[in-house]
Design a protein around this nucleic acid. Sequence first.
DNA 1: ATAATATATGAACAGTTATTCATATCTTGA
DNA 2: TCAAGATATGAATAACTGTTCATATATTAT
Lengths: 118, 118
Amino acid sequence: MDCNHENEHHLAAERAKATMPQEESIAQVCAAFKAISEPSRLKILLALRQGEMCVYHIVEAVGGTQSAVSHQLRILRDNRMIRARRDGQNVVYALADGHVRELLDTANEHLRCPIVTE
Amino acid sequence: MDCNHENEHHLAAERAKATMPQEESIAQVCAAFKAISEPSRLKILLALRQGEMCVYHIVEAVGGTQSAVSHQLRILRDNRMIRARRDGQNVVYALADGHVRELLDTANEHLRCPIVTE
DNA sequence: ATAATATATGAACAGTTATTCATATCTTGA
DNA sequence: TCAAGATATGAATAACTGTTCATATATTAT
């Protein structure tokens, strides 16, 4: 360990250690991002961006089997990304709140101007 | 399929299908988010937010073995989240661009005001 | 050239996760 | 109460992913 940037790097590393969030906070954030980092789930969220929908229509919008979609809905619900409301025979899903919408906006930006910028 | 929201839901589903991005775009965005959805990688990115660093200092800042960190650096590099520059014996890593920084800002917001808002 | 240091990488293993299939639960209309 | 429709769920499997260990590559100083 003796790069010629020793001082700057060491300082940055010190700041990094000092400002590094708790393991638990890190894990929470990661969980949130993991929820939208799987195609099947991101599709569901992007679909719900167009308005609330019951499961049947979600399946119609994103494809796949009813079971698979239902499993992913469960995960999204556990992560508080979506909320469910029963309405008769159906269960209507919607994005949980503005936070999620912001996340999706960020995702959408990256759709247009992806990270792979070269 | 005959919820009493038939029309609204059907419309939303239609819009969702119409606006659903290509599989490939979805995959790209997911890859970007997946990169920051693992604690080991998020920590590295948060560390680099404090300034560029060589591997040794990254290891110092985030913990874990040199090998594990190196593997994760590879993944982050493949996803263009970070860029590397050799400097003598060392390789100095830095966040790839402003986009990544924005993503991390978003992540940071969720650190303070997590999705689990209830 | 060789030793020492810094970083990268391949193989193997363990843990995680998405999907499928079958079935269960819940709600409504008859 | 029963049948039908809508949604959820448990178990099993296959694919994926992070870490470790050992080793390879690259750079510098001697």
